[in-house]
């Protein structure tokens, strides 16, 4: 009798536990990047409970996973270069060939992505660009140059916020100098270092999660920012113009990845399929105002998005470039520069 009670309670406990695990999904995501309505829709369609934590840079995502968070999240949304790094660190699970029924919805040019050829670990979430926006009430001159950030005119000195994102700052700095990213040439690296040192004296603050807010409030007049975030700032009443500089700008793509040791792997795949539905991908785009890498979204998009200046590089703008992944030696020099920049 006694044994049987124990046995039944164990069964109940185990099944209960399974049901519990079966109904959950744990997402590690950027801040302000997922519309609540879409999460609600996912929950009501699938009955899966979603919990979401947020981070504010690719590097802090990596750090959290390294520090032991791997195994507690199912999916995360790293940028292009971070997908490559995470895959290299063995932190991503492989998506089997037939496991995503909507994989065919990915736009062809994003299937063979340089950072994840064949999309073994990831699906597109959104893509966009990083450069900077200028408050047109404060400065009316030419903003089509990275000089605005690195060698600003007097009106803008001391009124610049820069993203707290080493990869993007280094990439934009390299574009400004016209040197390759992750250069191993010492003179070029020295030039980049002294550029940052001299530019820093004109910068007011570093911050990514505040990037939109400081433009809207007028704390700064120039902000390094992502294109969609800038259009949100404009919608919130800031008279800001997003620049596509002559020297070029940073292009990025955020991707939903399947993390290794995901506690709810099956639900993670359901979530990825859900995000590959054109209607849902469009919902994210309507919210975040970037671009989906998914076919057939156009009819679900708000018409204003197509003509939005932030989403349409001007004629004659420099080329867009992904942030490159540096080898260890160069990365250590970059880390040195970054600390020098901040001390």
């Amino acid at each position: 009798m006694f044994l049987r009670t124990i046995f039944t309670s164990l069964i109940i406990l185990l099944t209960a536990n399974f049901a519990y695990a079966g109904g959950k999904l744990s997402v590690y995501h950027w801040f302000e990047y997922m519309p609540q309505e879409l999460l609600d829709k996912f929950e009501s369609e699938t009955g899966i409970d979603v919990t979401m934590d947020t981070y504010d840079s690719n590097e802090s995502l990596l750090a959290a996973l390294k520090a032991g968070k791997l195994g507690s999240y199912d999916v995360a949304v790293p940028g292009d270069y971070m997908v490559e790094i995470l895959a290299g660190e063995g932190m991503l699970d492989t998506i089997g060939d037939s496991e995503l029924k909507n994989k065919g919805n990915i736009e062809p040019q994003w299937i063979e992505a340089s950072f994840d050829p064949g999309r073994k670990h990831s699906i597109p979430y959104q893509w966009g660009s990083t450069s900077f926006s200028v408050n047109r009430d404060v400065y009316k001159g030419n903003i089509n140059t990275t000089d605005i950030i690195f060698n600003p005119p007097d009106e803008l000195k001391g009124k610049i916020n820069v993203l707290d994102s080493q990869g993007e700052v280094m990439a934009l700095g390299s574009l400004h100098l016209g040197i390759p990213q992750c250069s191993t040439d010492r003179d070029q690296l020295k030039a980049l270092d002294s550029l940052l040192q001299s530019a820093k004296t004109h910068w007011a603050s570093f911050g990514s999660d505040i990037a939109k807010d400081v433009l809207v409030s007028g704390d700064v007049a120039v902000g390094m920012i992502w294109n969609g975030f800038s259009s949100k700032a404009r919608e919130e009443g800031a008279n800001v113009e997003y620049s596509y500089p002559d020297q070029g700008y940073v292009v990025w793509m955020d991707n939903v990845v399947l993390l290794k040791d995901a506690p709810n792997r099956q639900n993670a795949l359901i979530f990825m399929d859900f995000l590959l539905e054109p209607e849902n991908a469009a919902a994210v785009t309507n919210y975040a105002q970037y671009n989906a890498g998914v076919k057939g979204v156009t009819k679900f998009l708000e018409p204003a998005l197509a003509t939005m200046p932030e989403n349409n590089p001007r004629e004659g703008a420099g080329p867009g470039a992904f942030v490159a992944v540096c080898d260890q030696e160069t990365q250590e020099v970059y880390d040195q520069m970054w600390t020098r920049l901040r001390s």
């Binding site: 590097e59 707290d164 994102s165 910068w203 007011a204 603050s205 570093f206 911050g207 880390d335 901040r342």
Partner: peptide, 26 residues
């Protein structure tokens, strides 16, 4: 320091934070 000082220059706390969760990873 991060929110009011603009995080432009590190203080001890943010220097240490950067080593664990920021760019440096040291």
């Amino acid at each position: 320091p991060d929110l009011l000082g603009g995080a432009k220059t590190f203080m001890i706390g943010s220097l240490i934070e950067d080593q664990f969760k920021g760019n440096a990873g040291n």
